[in-house]
Amino acid sequence: MTQDHADENDSPPTTAELREHVRATREELGQTVEALAAKADVKARAQDRAAEVKSQVQDKAAEVKAQVHDKTAEVKAQVQDKTAEAKAQVHHKTAEARSRVQDKAAEFKAQVRTETAHARTQVHDTTAHTREQVASSVSAVAAKLNGSTPEQARAQVRERARVVVTVARRHRTALITFGAIVTMAVLRRTWRRTR
């Protein structure tokens, strides 16, 4: 600067010019020193960087929080939809199962009634037939006993008893069926009373 001024005027700088030049140089030097001091102040630079990073982290955390909130609401809605759908399916399946059970129960009930009626008829017929045989055997024994000796009467009673036992053995299924029917009837009445 002084050289430019010196070239222009070719005269030596004045005191005022020199003072101005010194003041400007001091000001530049002061700014340079401040800049160097700021670069050398690691603690202040670290604090500035930490504040900058903290701000970035807070911004990112707020962004993630908003995303999580949005996603949570979305998942909650999906869960509610799936829950309602599953509840409807369970209700539908339960109704179907109940209907099938009721149908099977009605079929079983009708089948039991049919088999019970059939067994009752067989037992009744067998019982009537056995009763007739026993009655005829008793009548025959009574008729024979009227004119026979005690040993002959015993032999005839034994013979007739053997016939009755043989008839009972032949109709064992009918007698067992009759017993089963009586047992089922008792169980059914007991079950109805406890309901």
Rank of each mutant, 00 (worst) to 15 (best):
A86Y: 09
A40W: 00
D41E: 07
A46Y: 03
L145Q: 09
V157N: 00
D7K: 07
P12R: 11
P150Q: 04
K76Y: 04
T2L: 14
S148M: 02
Q152V: 08
K104C: 03
D59H: 10
A143F: 05
T14S: 05
V53A: 09
D70G: 09
T121H: 01
A51E: 12
V112Q: 02
M1K: 02
E28N: 03
A84M: 09
V90F: 05
P12L: 13
R195E: 15
H21K: 06
V90Y: 06
E52K: 09
A51H: 14
Q133D: 07
A140L: 04
T127K: 00
E107T: 00
P12S: 02
A37N: 12
A161Y: 07
H92I: 02
N146I: 00
R192P: 06
G30H: 12
V167M: 10
E159K: 09
V33D: 08
D41P: 05
R162A: 15
R170T: 14
A66P: 00
A86K: 04
F108S: 10
E20S: 10
A44E: 11
A88F: 02
D59T: 08
V138I: 13
A180S: 11
D70C: 03
Q58V: 13
H5P: 00
A143Y: 05
E52M: 05
E34P: 00
V186R: 12
S55M: 13
A35Q: 14
K54E: 11
V186L: 12
A86F: 06
A77D: 04
V22I: 14
Q122E: 10
Q31P: 01
A135C: 06
N146P: 01
P150G: 02
A128M: 11
R120Y: 02
D70K: 03
E107Y: 03
R26Y: 11
S137E: 10
R131I: 02
G147D: 10
R120S: 09
R188F: 04
L36H: 09
S11P: 00
T190C: 12
E115S: 03
V90M: 06
K93H: 13
T94I: 07
T190P: 00
